[in-house]
Simulated scan of single mutants.
Amino acid sequence: MLTIIGKPTSINVRKVLWTCVELGLPFTREDWREEHAALNPNRMVPVLVDGDFTLWESNAICRYLCARAGSDALLPRDARARARVEQWMDWQATELNNAWRYPFMALVRASPAHTDPAQIEAGSAGWNRHVGILEAQLAATGAYVAGERFTLADVVIGLSLNRWSMTPMARPDYPHVAAYLARLVERPGYRAWCANGVP
């Protein structure tokens, strides 16, 4: 049995939970406790425990789960198709996530360290610009981020777009993103874990 450590309010924990649902992998989930600190030197979630094997970093965990399930349903075996999925996964982790950090902390978390109006405005504009990249990509594919089929790229990016759509700020009209989110809502894993971890 897989054990996933971390609260489902974490966007990165939800990546792993949703991936398990897509792959049909049973799991148990535990909140982070002080005794878990030895499992991840960064003291961050999620952490996956699979017997005597421990893994951290959410995208690495999602890739591992696909390999463990022996399935290419979410992560293709073909080198080019796989690279396209992983390209968007890495873009989500390095570019898209960095774009929303300041406005999310200000507008959702009400962090006292994130109250500069200029930085909120600049951060919101940058976040919208990055979602505009997805709007163009979805217009090109007509379906999902990496192409015609649902993949791990949609798990990680779907969660980020859910966060974008729930943040109280001005957003451009992105019809392809809206249609994409409507497609994701049809998936049981999205309904169970995407809306801030609240089924």
Rank of each mutant, 00 (worst) to 15 (best):
A118N: 07
W88C: 01
R163T: 12
A79V: 13
Y102H: 09
V131R: 01
M44D: 02
T115G: 14
S111K: 09
W193C: 00
E95D: 15
N196H: 15
F27W: 15
C66N: 07
S111G: 11
G126Q: 06
A83Q: 04
L55Q: 04
V45W: 11
A73D: 09
N162I: 03
I61S: 13
R183W: 06
G6M: 07
P168C: 13
D50A: 09
G197C: 11
V16F: 06
V13F: 08
V131N: 01
P8T: 09
D90E: 08
P117T: 11
Y144Q: 06
A69M: 01
V145N: 08
E135C: 09
R183D: 04
D90W: 01
A178V: 10
V45T: 15
T28W: 09
G158V: 01
F27T: 06
N59A: 13
R163Q: 11
A182W: 03
E22F: 10
D52M: 07
G189H: 06
T151H: 03
E148Q: 14
I120T: 14
E57H: 05
G132H: 03
L23E: 05
A182V: 04
M166F: 12
Q137N: 13
D72L: 04
N162H: 13
P26D: 12
C66S: 06
L184Q: 05
A136Q: 13
E135W: 07
A140W: 03
P76E: 02
F104W: 14
I4M: 11
E35H: 15
M1L: 14
F104G: 02
A192C: 02
N196F: 13
Q87R: 07
G197A: 11
A93C: 00
A118L: 11
A182S: 10
L65H: 10
T28P: 07
T151K: 00
C20I: 09
A179V: 05
R84N: 01
R187M: 02
E95A: 15
E95P: 04
N162S: 10
